[in-house]
Computed example of a mutant assay.
Amino acid sequence: MSVLAIAMALDAALGEPKWLWDRVPHPAVLMGRTIAWGEARFNTGPVRRLRGVVLILGLGLAAGSLGALLQMFGPLVEILVIAVLLAQRSLVAHVQAVADGLRVSLGDGRRAVAMIVGRDTARMDRSAVARAAIESAAENFSDGVVAPVFWYVLAGLPGLLIYKMVNTADSMIGYRTPRYEAFGWAAARSDDFLNLLPARLTAMILAMVLGVTAQRAAIATEAGQHRSPNAGWPEAAMARGLDVALSGPRAYDGEMREYPFVNPGGRREIGPVEIEAAVDALWRGWAVLLAGAVVLTLIV
């Protein structure tokens, strides 16, 4: 497991070098192109749900086979693949950019948060911008850091690549829209399954580093009320740990959706200070994961 610890440190130190990904496509981009090709090719005609199931099975098989092949090239290749597919440094940078933007102006904050969330940002006030950034921090720590580490530990590079492929597919086609509801069903359900344990592990880690493990019952209750079966766990832990109210009403494509608040008794007037507290929690949570990787190195 020293491979994992080195890869985590490499990602945290370098993130995603712009000079490299300006010259060659990032693996996530290649995954996205493959999924887009499959969607355009197979999301037609009858039995779209079945077609979507077949696509996800095919993508998973291809990703797992590629992972097994790459694993044969030795630890250096393994370290590089893991580091590229982790997102700690880039996540922290994007969330911190929202705090920095808000300190300049509301418009700068809105533009920064629009880079990491899918909701409408044009009419957000400062608190709504901060909430969106903190929610993204919590959810993407689970999806972009904890879950990839979890599946690598369980199943090596095949597990990691399968997870990333499914997670990318869910982000592209896992929506309840007329176009994707049937075809993207398998992507959404597969992603829910693969994130089931990592999301709860993320909540445990965040609750621990933020000193709110005693509130685990409240975290579990609020997570169960969330619109997502998994995203509510890290979000509820972060909300409790920072004593802020997250989620709540927001707009998508001009339509307002009245989602309930997570930790409704928490502070609602928030800004850059709370965003930076979330960034600090991300780094402390990452340190817990790194320590776990080192311990595994010593005992396995």
Rank of each mutant, 00 (worst) to 15 (best):
G285S: 14
R123Q: 13
F141P: 01
G67E: 13
M115W: 08
I275L: 07
Y180F: 14
A155H: 05
A132C: 10
A99I: 02
Q88Y: 08
R267L: 06
V3C: 09
N263M: 03
G64N: 07
V209Q: 02
G248M: 01
V3L: 08
V166F: 06
L55W: 04
P158M: 03
A40M: 02
M172K: 15
D191M: 08
V113H: 12
G224H: 14
M72G: 07
V300P: 01
L86S: 06
V273P: 00
M1D: 05
D170C: 10
A9D: 11
S105T: 07
P75M: 12
E78C: 08
A114L: 00
Y259R: 13
W233A: 11
G232Y: 12
A63W: 05
L296D: 10
G58W: 04
P229A: 14
V262E: 10
G248D: 05
A9M: 14
Q71T: 13
E135H: 10
R250W: 01
M208L: 14
E222V: 00
L57Y: 04
I299Y: 12
I275Q: 07
G232D: 10
L80C: 07
V145K: 00
T202G: 12
L154W: 10
A287L: 14
L157T: 02
L10M: 13
L194N: 06
P27T: 08
E269G: 07
G67A: 07
N195E: 11
R176F: 03
G60H: 03
R189M: 03
A237R: 11
I35Q: 13
A138S: 13
G174I: 11
V273W: 04
R89E: 15
G45H: 02
W283G: 14
G266T: 11
H94W: 01
E39S: 05
N167T: 00
G52T: 06
L20F: 15
V262D: 01
L154S: 09
D192C: 01
Q71N: 07
M72S: 15
V244A: 02
R131N: 07
E274T: 00
N230L: 09
L86A: 01
A218I: 00
I82D: 09
R179V: 12
R250L: 09
L85R: 04
G285T: 08
D191K: 09
P229S: 14
V209M: 01
G265I: 03
Y259T: 04
D243S: 15
M165W: 07
